[in-house]
């Protein structure tokens, strides 16, 4: 049967996949996608826990509220992030992490 731990493992693996992407990939956009993956994994953890922590017989909606906030914040972050990336691209015509390497030291 599917237990809470199954969900936790899945979300943890998703998180790990995202983390790998963040480290291994070079394209800023893909890195950013992997970050979204990580956030979603965290959300899955939260929802799974919330389903198994009953409050008054119902799933714990406090946790789902946090999920809601996470999603909202992530969306805002993406908007700002993409705007910065576009501006950077306009300035430099490349979106590789290493191309953004003027600052070194």
């Amino acid at each position: 049967m599917v237990t809470l731990n199954h969900y936790l493992i899945v979300s943890g693996m998703l998180f790990a996949i995202g983390l790998t992407g963040v480290i291994a990939r070079r394209s800023i956009l893909v890195i950013y996608m992997c970050l979204e993956l990580m956030l979603s994994a965290a959300n899955l953890t939260l929802v799974a826990f919330s389903r198994f922590h009953l409050v008054d017989g119902l799933p714990d909606y406090n946790a789902q509220a946090l999920v809601f906030f996470t999603i909202t914040v992530a969306a805002a972050e993406v908007a700002v992030g993409l705007a910065i990336i576009v501006a950077l691209f306009r300035a430099k015509h490349s979106v590789d992490v290493e191309a953004a390497g003027k600052l070194k030291g």
Binding site: T3, L4, N5, I9, G12
Partner: peptide
């Protein structure tokens, strides 16, 4: 890093008795 993380997670989950329930 991912492998380490998942391994860690496996250990953590094995310690997590609350998680052995179904819906």
């Amino acid at each position: 890093l991912a492998v380490i993380f998942v391994g860690q997670l496996g250990y953590i989950v094995s310690q997590h008795e609350f998680g052995n329930r179904t819906t």
